[in-house]
């Protein structure tokens, strides 16, 4: 093979690899940074709450790595929620394109979750849909992590009034077990 052809093959491979990286890391909810997972072998069983057909929430079991830091387990749990359900009859609650920007737990055991603007911009609306989005996060985290007493939503690093005009995001949320019951 001539030197020029080899160069073309190399450029094609490099472009392909670059394209794959851009595609992978621009996918909704997928972050290249997963701290604390290196060397983790032990796993934990958790329940992720998704929207059910009746407009409430139902759990789906998942497995995450048992990491030294609880904050890493919380991030893994949120990624599982953002992936959406596998079971039929359950529906994703985090709007497409939403990215997790960060989490922070304060001394009052309120977990702050910072979402990208797509949480608001891509939400289909409706108080039922909005409640499912809010409490799928709150009930998933509070039921799997007893240290999390409340969850506060941030959007693009700032306090947001609401997702789609119904539910008040300015105050932290406690778990609402009534959302998990079939109506």
């Amino acid at each position: 093979m001539k030197r020029k052809e080899l160069l073309l093959v190399f450029i094609a491979l490099a472009l392909g690899a670059a394209g794959y990286c851009i595609w992978k890391y621009s996918m909704p909810g997928i972050s290249p940074h997963r701290p604390g997972l290196q060397g983790s072998e032990e796993t934990l069983k958790i329940d992720i709450y998704f929207a059910s057909e009746d407009g409430n929430l139902a759990p789906e079991p998942r497995t995450i790595y048992k990491t030294a830091e609880q904050s890493d387990q919380i991030i893994q749990t949120l990624y599982e929620l953002m992936k959406g359900p596998q079971k039929a009859g359950l529906f994703p609650t985090i709007p497409q394109g939403t990215r997790l920007r960060g989490t922070y737990m304060d001394e009052d055991q309120t977990l702050y979750i910072d979402w990208s603007r797509e949480l608001v911009a891509n939400h289909p609306g409706g108080s039922t849909g909005e409640l499912a989005t809010v409490y799928s996060v709150v009930n998933t985290l509070t039921s799997n992590f007893p240290d999390v007493k409340r969850v506060k939503f941030l959007v693009e690093g700032e306090e947001a009034e609401t997702i789609s005009g119904h539910i008040d995001l300015t105050q932290p949320f406690e778990a609402d077990p009534s959302m998990n019951k079939a109506r």
């Binding site: 929207a51 059910s52 057909e53 009746d54 529906f91 609650t93 609306g125 409706g126 108080s127 499912a132």
Partner: peptide
């Protein structure tokens, strides 16, 4: 008017 993630609600 409401909206849900499921079209059955």
């Amino acid at each position: 008017a409401d909206f849900s993630q499921s079209d059955q609600t």
